[in-house]
Design a protein around this nucleic acid. Sequence first.
DNA 1: AGATAGATGAGAATCTTTTTCATTACGAGT
DNA 2: ACTCGTAATGAAAAAGATTCTCATCTATCT
Lengths: 137, 137
Amino acid sequence: MDNQEIRNAGLKVTLPRVKILELLENSTQRHVSAEDVYKLLLDKGEEIGLATVYRVLTQFEAAGLVARHNFEGGHAVFELDRGEHHDHIVCVVCGKVEEFMDATIEQRQREVAQERGFEMADHSLIIYGRCNKHKEA
Amino acid sequence: MDNQEIRNAGLKVTLPRVKILELLENSTQRHVSAEDVYKLLLDKGEEIGLATVYRVLTQFEAAGLVARHNFEGGHAVFELDRGEHHDHIVCVVCGKVEEFMDATIEQRQREVAQERGFEMADHSLIIYGRCNKHKEA
DNA sequence: AGATAGATGAGAATCTTTTTCATTACGAGT
DNA sequence: ACTCGTAATGAAAAAGATTCTCATCTATCT
């Protein structure tokens, strides 16, 4: 359960941490900003300081529990890391985000890194486009 | 020449714009933040306000003269768009940035977007890793 | 239960970027 | 080249996101 995941991360099992993790697991939105988390918790009657939300999300990221993404727009969004790696495709009109995984791309990335003497640690791929509802005529 | 590029963007040819474009063309660093541009200009004795730097870079981006990247770390970096599209590979230890272009990846991205009903407009791919000088034993 | 190291909350501080507004400069037309 | 209207600039304030400070509180270990 959650508590164990927090403990495994070397963190004390505190109410803010449990609530934030729960929220990430149950939220309908996969990608939430720190501000989102803060407000969603407020809506549920949980008074957790914004500074704590930032701290906890950063700790969860360090522990590999959540991933932080720098989409366009200046602020970071977080999502629960459910083990399955994936990339994102974002509609530039409505902001809808879909996830995908493509083995060919994954493989080529590894090769490209190697060809340049790099040892790949991670990557970030975001495709921007217009979704079926917002394609141009 | 530069002036024509600025004019083509529908912008007046002003001293700040010319100086910023020149700097982007001649800088040894390919990826510079707005703050970098501001300071580099100061070093050259050009007193151009930071607000103007932001405004001009945003205008250049809209005109397709420069590309804006959201690497990790909260602030955006800009680079002159020389027509040739490319992606980036960044060393997580020293911050070194190399550019690359891989036709296979480009092609697959287009296909992935299509398979999901998207019309690809742009994309951002950043590989993070350790360069040859910082690989683990 | 008590001690202690770690966690929290509130607000201040910091950093990046945008906005406001008064002043200045480009460039079209003469 | 000169004038004028519009767009551009600079400085400072504002806004937005994130981090830090520090006094207080609380898991966890004994």
